[in-house]
Amino acid sequence: MSSHTPKEYDLVVLGATGYTGKYVAEYVTSHLPTTLKWAVAGRSETKLSSLVDELRTLNPDRMAPGIEVANLSPDDLDNLVRKTYILINTVGPYHLYSSPVVEACAQNGTHYLDVTGEAPWVLDMIQKHHSTAQSSSAIIIPEIGIESAPSDLLTWSLATLIRQKCGTGITSTNATVYEMNSRPSGGTLATILTTFDSYSPRQVASANSGRWASSPVPPPPPPSKSSSSYVSSLARIFRRIIGVRTLPHLGLVIPSPGAGPNVNIVQRSWGLQDRGAYYGPRFSYHEYASVRNRLVGWLVHTAIMLGALSLVFPPVRWLAKKLVFAPGQGVSREDAARDRMEFWAVATADEGEGGRAGRSGSPGRRLRGFGSRGGCIT
């Protein structure tokens, strides 16, 4: 832990009365050890008290969580984070409200988790608070929700598996969202629609470009490319426009709309794991979404591109805000219970790095992971 001084709580859920925060609080109540000392935090004591009453019915054996009333002022946040070892923050859009939360945790040595997918904001937080968090021993982990935990955990699992089986790192790693049945909450939609209010299109594009901006060490050298003909260059341009391609073992795919923040997090994990040595010095990661056929792939890809482009214009964002879930709202519990996401990935062992794969002189091994379990074939 970051401090030897005993804390009042092991865990605090900030924003616990919101749509996502309530799910987090319910999960803690139903699944984590009953000896856990924890609290729910937010601005309204009345709402927090009602939430605690609901939580008591889920697990009568668990001691009720504490109630911490806190605004997003520096004094309130400092007082809150000093009471706990770990803070789970569900107050979004994060770029509007949660910068002082990260700052307070970094300064006070409190470990921090959130469920954002706001790549420009995450880069801001890294640049502003990484050194402070290092000094205070605070562990700051953004994006532990649908963005970007599946991508990050799956890549780490494959790298670990290949280290164990082949004694080497990995090079190209391709992942695809093979199946997804999920609808975003109002908070997620508000985040998407307000990002362009706080960041320019150039900043958003740069943060989601996958150019190793979040890595703490310089990126691996780009793979050498053989001289390409005019025809092959045209083929690459055509593929970018159409969006559909075929990958070995993964089938037909298009660029994933969530790839930007996910790639950034995976690349940062690469740099944090022994300065890139664990994943390997020639590592790369790419993320896609599976499609049934080329026509569907082209239609979906085109719709995503046009939709993303339209958000640059303020009138479009204003109209969209009127038509979608408001912050704090989301799909019903019945619909949420049917949410499903399945990731597939293929990683190639780096036979040039050394270890068994390199010494054998055999072709690099490809291992395929299913979900986050990291099962494989060789």
Rank of each mutant, 00 (worst) to 15 (best):
G210A: 10
P150K: 01
A41Y: 03
P142D: 01
I146G: 07
S99F: 00
S206A: 13
S49H: 06
A349F: 02
L80S: 06
D114S: 00
S136A: 12
K225Q: 14
M125F: 09
H301S: 14
K322T: 03
S172V: 10
K128D: 14
V102L: 05
S137P: 02
L51G: 06
I126L: 12
K321S: 09
R62C: 07
A277E: 15
E353A: 15
P184C: 07
S214G: 13
L234D: 06
V331P: 02
R333N: 14
G258E: 06
N208W: 00
R366H: 08
S206K: 13
V263L: 03
S131I: 08
G276I: 01
W270N: 04
Y9A: 01
V28S: 09
G42M: 10
I140H: 01
S290N: 12
D114N: 02
Y97G: 02
R163L: 02
V253M: 08
W318T: 08
T57G: 08
E342Q: 13
V316N: 01
Y27P: 07
H95P: 05
Q273C: 09
P74W: 04
M125L: 07
A207Q: 06
Q203S: 15
R368K: 14
N71E: 10
L154I: 10
G328L: 00
W156I: 15
R282S: 12
W298N: 12
T302V: 04
N79W: 00
V263K: 09
E54Y: 04
V231C: 14
I304Y: 01
Y112F: 09
F325H: 15
K22M: 06
L72E: 05
G358M: 04
Q107S: 15
G271C: 03
T155E: 09
L14H: 03
T29Y: 02
Q164R: 15
T188D: 01
Q107A: 15
S50K: 10
I241P: 04
E8R: 14
P281D: 14
V91C: 13
L32R: 09
H301Y: 12
Y27L: 11
I86C: 09
R245K: 13
I88S: 12
S200Y: 04
A259N: 04
S215N: 01
R163I: 02
V102H: 03
L48D: 09
G21T: 04
R340P: 00
W270S: 07
W38I: 10
T46D: 13
V91F: 08
P281S: 15
D124C: 12
L113T: 07
A41N: 12
S269F: 08
L367D: 01
L154F: 00
E8L: 14
A337H: 11
S233N: 14
A336T: 05
S151W: 02
G210H: 10
S284A: 14
D152Y: 01
H249W: 11
